[in-house]
Design a protein around this nucleic acid. Structure first.
Lengths: 214, 214
DNA sequence: ATAAACCTGTGACAAAAGATACAAGTTGAT
DNA sequence: ATCAACTTGTATCTTTTGTCACAGGTTTAT
């Protein structure tokens, strides 16, 4: 991973500090001192299943998919977008542990890396870091429970439609059927079939790598 | 909910303090002061969907099922056994919020109640409470991810067998097919059918409300 | 311009899970 | 002892999801 120009890096770190309402001067100094920003390219792995996690990853730009794999199937755990923190690497900060997920870049971007040993200390030392930590857990946990119960109760057709709506911009989602299959934990043919049904029901229109919700 | 004899209550609170290695004298005093123990009977609801959560619930004895419901189906989120904390009520401590789950007693028992406003304060004020908080989130999150991916990838037959093994004592599980169906998010007939298959495969033997893993 | 890689559609079939309906055994309270 | 409530078994049918196989369109890099 390369490094960005100092100027860009400073700007990004500032954004992060502002987003999470970090006030403590000492903490800001420690962040400047101990964290570092690195860039990643589309397709690059940020975390690999079974590897030890050594740094907390906070995405500053780009988009990262965090998922579990099982043979040739996958299921999305969450997407990381700018200013979002990988909850699993945060969790690892409190006890050295191996990753049981993969994180792959879907777009080029940048990530703030904080070595795990600091993250735990800070969470008791600095109130804003404490709040950040707890909020990250809370939000991730509730997001996961929501998806857990969708997975248990909703037929795939409904989950697919919900997902398209959640991820779309201005009602349009540019994604291939194969990508959707990976995110939803199924196979490409099934997604193609369901999308055709949704199109027949006049709920969406389909194009190459593009789905429009009506 | 009734109250236990002072003697029993003291003993239980002591157990809790020991289990979570709480050392701070001030915190122990606050616990004695602000927390209270109540008992519950089998079948009683500790938390109801859509109600505001006002106290952190820590089970001291008995067994509690926390689940989500959807029409006539349910899915288990987790079971609480002695000394375990309801992660969802913990989460609610950091921002007043409604429950989106139910918690029902499967056996008579007791619960330590701590009003939410203290829980947040303590997590930054006392190191052992901070550790307790973080650990609760970490463990619950990782347990949930594990089950999420089982739900996504494993056929019900395998999930059922795994579940029976996880919950059994000395290879025996005393539970009706209907109860298992609720915990696994399916219907009774499906469980009966799968259990018969497992019996035919000589993996379990079946009796009235009793499944023995071979 | 052309090949390779990617993307979409679809038919046919298999397996898994859900729904409905009914029968019969077991347990527990009175 | 008897009835109600609970528990288990099972046959049939439908729906949903997964698998395999193949055809043809689109995009991208060289």
């Amino acid at each position: 991973m390369g490094r960005y120009a100092i100027k860009t890096m400073d700007k990004l770190l500032e954004d992060f500090i502002k987003t999470h309402r970090i006030k403590e001067k000492d903490l800001i100094e420690e962040l400047n001192d101990k964290a570092y920003i690195s860039e990643f390219k589309k397709g690059e792995f940020l975390i690999k299943n079974n590897n030890y996690i050594k740094v907390l990853k906070i995405v500053l730009g780009g988009k990262v998919r965090v998922y579990q794999e099982n043979q040739d199937r996958e299921i999305l755990i969450y997407h990381l977008k700018p200013m979002e923190t990988c909850t699993l690497s945060l969790s690892a900060c409190f006890e050295d542990c191996k990753s049981n997920v993969n994180a792959i870049a879907e777009e080029d971007g940048m990530v703030l890396n904080i070595p795990v040993r600091f993250v735990e200390q800070w969470s008791f030392k600095y109130e804003s870091w404490h709040r950040f930590t707890i909020n990250t857990f809370r939000e991730s946990y509730s997001y996961l429970i929501e998806n857990y119960s969708k997975l248990a109760f909703q037929p795939l057709k409904d989950r697919l439609l919900d997902y398209i709506i959640e991820k779309s911009n201005h009602n349009i989602l540019n994604r291939s059927h194969a990508q959707l299959a990976k995110e939803l934990g199924t196979t490409r043919e099934v997604i193609s079939r369901l999308l055709k049904k949704l199109e027949a029901d006049k709920i969406v229109t389909l194009g190459q790598k593009s789905i429009k919700v009506l």
